[in-house]
Structures are given as structure tokens and as C-alpha cells.
């Protein structure tokens, strides 16, 4: 179950790994250029992901 903490790396790979692809103005999302939206998306997704890790992490139960 310690492997659950590896999920912490997902935002690193997701945000930075696809950054060159996301480096574009169009399409606008929520009024923002796509490159800025890409940052906002991962800033919102990350707490959700870490929240899941927190719930599943056995260290927080014992």
C-alpha cells in the first residue's frame, strides 16, 4: 500500500509532461488562454488526487 504515495508524482508527469502540447492560446477555456487553463486545471486536480491518496494511505489510519 506504500505504492499509493507514488500517485503524488501524477501531477508532475501530467502537468509538465504535456506542457509543450498545452503551450497554445486556443482554445479559450473559462475565458483564459489554454496554456493558463492547463495550469489552473492541474492546480484544481492535484488537491483532489492528494485527497484520494490521503484517504487510501494506511499511515493516516494507524
Amino acid at each position: 500500500m506504500k505504492a499509493i504515495k507514488l500517485l503524488v508524482l501524477v501531477p508532475f508527469i501530467g502537468y509538465l509532461g504535456f506542457l509543450p502540447w498545452a503551450n497554445t492560446i486556443e482554445p479559450y477555456v473559462l475565458g483564459m488562454p489554454f496554456f493558463l487553463f492547463w495550469l489552473l486545471l492541474w492546480m484544481v486536480l492535484s488537491p483532489v488526487l492528494i485527497g484520494i491518496v490521503y484517504v487510501l494511505d494506511p499511515d493516516n489510519k494507524k
Binding site: 503524488v8 508532475f12 502537468y15 496554456f35 493558463l36 492535484s46 492528494i50 490521503y54 499511515d59
Partner: peptide
């Protein structure tokens, strides 16, 4: 312009890293 996004990007990734490192 967009080069400034590196500031929130590194900060939110550092916070995520802290889940494992800080404890």
C-alpha cells in the same frame, strides 16, 4: 507574460511533494 506561470506551477508541485517529504 506566460513565463510568470512558473511561480504558481513550482509552488503547487512543491506542496504536493510535501505530502511525502514533510512528514
Amino acid at each position: 507574460g506566460a513565463a510568470a506561470y512558473y511561480v504558481p506551477a513550482y509552488i503547487f508541485l512543491a506542496y504536493i511533494l510535501s505530502y511525502w517529504l514533510a512528514p
